[in-house]
Design a protein around this nucleic acid. Structure first.
Lengths: 252, 252
DNA sequence: GATCATAGTCGTCTGCCTGACGATAAACAG
DNA sequence: CTGTTTATCGTCAGGCAGACGACTATGATC
């Protein structure tokens, strides 16, 4: 097929973000309230149009910064001590997913440590961290009526895909450390796994696994007692990004 | 951001296909020769524009049918006895990846059994199955000069991503059966793994693993001798799509 | 037809990893 | 001082994978 500039239908291309964090023992996602029709007043994933001169990952990083203030690191940006992990998730392009026009959305997945200031202040009217369980509960019932409505557009599916990606990827990679601050304890890392998977893990076997995998955790020498109990060793994420053999979730 | 129809830049959206098969003990990909500028005469991945009224997966299935005659089954189309596995791979949208205009390409991965008729006869001038090793060898040297040039656009990276997806996904899923005809032997399945991973596997341990995983293989009762040697039992793919525990590739 | 080459299939053995769980250590709250 | 909490080390049995021996059933070759 020759590339006739008039031969292709024009699309709008957006990035949508599944931003996950662990707060109070629960896996939470960032949701913004829509100020415009359609789905006015409903909760949605943050996102926006890709600009003419930017890459898809740049657009996602820009939206992430606008909504959360987080700097992102991903495939093309090496990891720093602060900032969130960012990776492409999947692309959604059903005709009719947006009633106004043909929109193709390249969804991205971002993983962030619990934010010191949960101040999402972008162009959205309001934003909040909500447990993914609440956001995905169809016809769900939150504490108030506002939370009951399902997410706008096909964002429930996008969120579900992002959560599943995170759940499976921490099995065989060091991605769970993206939910932790730069220095963390084995127990804090374990609580991340427990929140993401929604299960309880044996602290002794977990400790053996993560400390026994070479290159996964590097002791910093310090200790902390911020969880109460006996002081725990502090670690930072090591260079190993792949966990071999993987740590499989307990059977369903 | 309000959705002002004039506020977003228009994009062209295409689907590109990484179609993989196993031929003569090698993992091969479908490549088409470009008949138009830019990259005229160079090899590229098959693909085309997404139409105004079709879903991304539909567009990929249509392109696959045009190029290979294969019917696809994927997330939204249940598996049939014939046809190829189709799934979304990733989306590539660098500004400048196409010198003529802003194009976002949603790449898809298709896995097909060795085709009875390798007759790719779509709109491309010519098409061929080429070992991925040859296509990815930068400044590679094939039998003839034509094969030496790298793939057009960013298609080498897309192909590499697709190959890596296939290599990793057969570890923990039954996807390798997508490379096999409806009925196949354990040895044929093992040769698929060997070709995709580029390693030699122990036939006895492989046999134990795949026949010992419940729901993975279902014996049909028949036997075949098409490989020479002692007749082998014929199987078809069972209902299990996930392989637990996974079959990990030998260490690098 | 005997022999050989080729594949397929069944076992055995050993070492590693995991899940279950006991025991000890080091902090804090009363 | 005692109980509670969390961290960390050890032990043990079962499961699984890699290495590899043995046997079986075909076709090819002499």
């Amino acid at each position: 097929m020759p590339y006739d500039p008039s031969a292709f239908p024009p699309f709008a291309v957006t990035v949508d973000l599944v931003v996950l964090t662990v707060r109070r023992h629960a896996l939470c996602a960032l949701a913004v309230r829509r100020g415009e029709s359609p789905f006015k007043g409903r909760w949605a994933l943050p996102g926006g149009f890709v600009r003419d001169d930017e890459d898809l990952e740049q657009a996602a990083a820009r939206e992430l910064a606008e909504e959360t203030g987080l700097r992102a690191h991903g495939p093309s940006v090496p990891a720093q001590d602060n900032g969130a992990h960012l990776e492409q998730l999947a692309t959604y392009g059903d005709p009719g997913r947006d009633p106004r026009m043909r929109v193709v959305s390249v969804a991205h997945l971002a993983l962030a440590p619990d934010l010191p200031a949960p101040r999402p202040g972008g162009d959205a009217h309001s934003a909040r961290w909500a447990p993914v369980e609440d956001l995905l509960r169809q016809g769900g019932y939150g504490q108030d009526e506002e939370q009951a409505a399902p997410l706008a557009f096909d964002h429930a599916r996008i969120l579900a895909d992002g959560v599943e990606r995170a759940r499976s990827k921490i099995e065989y990679s060091s991605l769970a450390t993206a939910f932790c601050p730069p220095e963390f304890t084995v127990g804090e890392l374990r609580r991340v796994y427990e929140a993401v998977w929604g299960v309880a893990l044996d602290p002794r076997n977990f400790h053996r696994k993560v400390t026994g995998t070479p290159g996964f955790l590097v002791p910093t020498g310090g200790t902390t007692t911020r969880q109460g109990g006996r002081p725990a060793q502090l670690f930072r994420a090591g260079g190993a990004t792949l966990l071999n053999p993987p740590m499989l979730r307990p059977e369903a």
